[in-house]
Design a protein around this nucleic acid. Structure first.
Lengths: 241, 241
DNA sequence: GCCGATTTGTCCGTATGTATC
DNA sequence: CGATACATACGGACAAATCGG
């Protein structure tokens, strides 16, 4: 599917870095060397390196070279990073997962919902509550709002499996951009009802707006995580100098 | 001095989007139009658009155009985003800020510290504890580890102002990459001693490793935030398709 | 459904600037 | 000073997706 040459180079270098073909703080081959290795133009090599830079894998140094600054991290418990579904996350985190649908209903956006979710008043939505289990333990409570016209045919059965697989596989929808906000909030009654938080009185909350490849927002989700099983990772890079 | 042309175009378009010269869901001018407007090559325009895409401001659609998907968000309380110092954050969040240095000391990294911070055993470090006030209220507790050889000349006085200003201004060091992990943790005795958390028994914790433009890690920081005054924002974009 | 025009996506080759060694 | 390496910019070519007639 992705035949893009720069993407191939990106993945190849990424794997070499992860498997320590290049070790921490070591220099990668120069751009000119990589051009010869991969038989491509300078732009294509630079594009792959730009992706690695954005991932925090390497650091280009003007006039000197490109340094590997990747350090393996212990994937503790449940780590959230780029765009991926719960199912994909569990696989990457090597957990067995399951989902219980607590509520599956339809509603129409009003002013209050519009302010919260970004869906214009009058829009038809699915509202779903789901409880997520990792290794049989209930750890995450999801509140999903889906744009009905974009995800028609959604059923509780699908919601208990992977909604994203349905959207991407069956409907041919492409998830592209996700804007996320992370906060820490007090537990609610419904949190306590389903999740054993021991003595914690708050949860890690990710709210996200997700857009498809037409720039249409089709999802708003609030995902409430057990503190002990939550870790969010991020790399920030200064633009320009 | 950012004289880069793509950066100028990026900032110009960004401002036009923020001031709603282009409104939400509207198409931006086509690449060819922008080439004429800015008098530059296609690559340069595309580079600016790529930055806007990474910011979650626009979404390019193959064969159709580039859509504005920017929505203004209410900057509630204290929002964390890209790389910036506490001082820069407070300015952007329009707060008045101050800092109290609780502890300023030197130490040598051992195995335990190496595992936590990434600084090799035997490395000389500054260890600083600082309390951050917003509008006179203590809200953030910082534990900083700085690589001594990279930030020589650091004093408690500087630590009570802006360390980053000292590093970038006086020492000519360039902050480039920051790897961050966000978790929710129980409050500690020292948290409770300095910060009024009301009935919260946990805090939002950002741990970060920061690298300079030589790819040298010069900082490890754990920043503990009051839940009511914490918000972390992020945009994730799918690579390839 | 077809065809041509438009628009974004990928890739190439080259030139010039700037920082490092 | 020259060689090397990354940074920016240009112009051109072709592919792929979309849209209107």
């Amino acid at each position: 599917m992705p035949k893009a040459k720069y993407n191939h180079i990106y993945k190849d270098l990424k794997e070499k870095i992860e498997t320590e073909v290049y070790s921490y703080q070591e220099m990668l081959p120069s751009e000119n060397t990589l051009i010869l290795e991969y038989g491509c133009s300078r732009n294509t090599v630079r594009r792959a390196l730009a992706l690695l830079t954005a991932d925090g894998y390497v650091q280009p140094m003007h006039g000197k070279g490109v340094r590997n600054i990747f350090q393996p991290v212990e994937q503790a418990l449940f780590t959230v990073g780029g765009i991926e579904s719960f199912k994909e996350s569990t696989i990457r985190n090597k957990r067995t997962a399951s989902t219980k649908v607590l509520l599956f209903t339809e509603l129409t956006s009003d002013e209050k919902i519009e302010k919260k979710t970004g869906f214009k008043k009058g829009t038809r939505l699915y509202y779903i509550q789901r409880l997520r289990f990792l290794n049989k333990i209930p750890l995450i409570l999801d509140h999903n709002y889906f744009l009905k016209e974009a995800v028609s045919g959604l059923t509780p059965e699908i919601a208990s499996q992977s909604v994203y697989e349905y959207l991407e596989g069956t409907l041919g929808l492409t998830i592209t951009t996700s804007k996320r906000t992370l906060t820490v909030e007090h537990v609610t009654q419904i949190d306590e009802k389903y999740i054993d938080l021991k003595d914690y009185n708050c949860m890690a909350v990710i709210t996200s707006q997700t857009f498809d490849d037409n720039g249409i927002q089709f999802e708003y989700t609030q995902s409430r995580h057990h503190p002990d099983y939550f870790r969010f990772q991020d790399v920030a890079v200064r633009k320009v100098h």
